[in-house]
């Protein structure tokens, strides 16, 4: 159960953005992605999660083991907190683990419709989804957007103790320090050259 990325090239809208990205993550390890806006963090994470095809290179990870999370977290305003979580648990073949509500301080809000939550509470609910789906490789795109300091710590604690501590893997694009003992990968050196090949326009140039 490890993540192995070799010489990965990714494209956004058919144009190469990153190339020759390589890294490894063993169980229990996290990797923080850094780089200026537009460098391709989201594209890389979406490619790793299998939402878009890689332009080149290899991604090795066990089948059906990864999950993707961005700030759009698929929370339905009309469903309650527990209904939202129970749905994602069931889609992944499991049941709602009540402990997750405590981890993200949602226990008091459990029967509130998600539409009545504050932005920060909604984000906590979105992140709590990661705790109920039982996936071991998480690709997280700016997971702490609109969280306050206490909530960031809550999430970091969950990630360290409940996920990485249990042998999980996380690749995180974030601009704040989560307090994880994780190596950082700056993506700036991997930006694709302006004349990089492999894009969908290549045949026309």
């Amino acid at each position: 159960m490890s993540l192995h990325v070799e010489n990965l090239g990714v494209a956004r809208g058919g144009r190469p953005v990153l190339e020759a990205v390589s890294f490894d993550c063993a169980p229990g390890e996290a990797l923080v992605l850094r780089g200026p806006n537009g460098v391709g963090k989201t594209t890389l994470l979406r490619t790793l999660a299998g939402l878009q095809p890689a332009m080149s290179g290899d991604i090795t990870l066990p089948e059906d083991s990864s999950a993707y999370a961005s700030h759009a977290d698929g929370i339905k305003a009309q469903l309650s907190v527990t209904e939202n979580l129970a749905f994602w648990a069931a889609v992944h073949g499991g049941a709602l683990d009540e402990g997750v509500l405590a981890d993200f301080d949602l226990a008091a809000l459990r029967s509130r419709p998600a539409g009545t939550l504050s932005a920060g509470q909604k984000r906590r609910l979105g992140l709590a989804r990661l705790g109920v789906i039982g996936r071991s490789v998480l690709f997280l795109d700016e997971p702490t957007v609109s969280l306050d300091g206490a909530a960031v710590k809550m999430f970091a604690d969950w990630l360290r103790d409940r996920h990485l501590g249990q042998g999980g893997i996380a690749v995180i694009a974030t601009h704040i320090d989560l307090g994880l003992e994780a190596p950082t990968l700056d993506l700036s050196p991997y930006v694709a050259a302006p004349d990089a090949g492999g894009g969908s326009d290549e045949a026309f140039l």
């Binding site: 144009r15 302006p194 004349d195 326009d201 026309f204 140039l205």
Partner: peptide
């Protein structure tokens, strides 16, 4: 093809 090529060159 030429239109696509023009767009590709412009994008680059």
């Amino acid at each position: 093809i030429r239109l696509r090529r023009a767009r590709a060159l412009q994008a680059r």
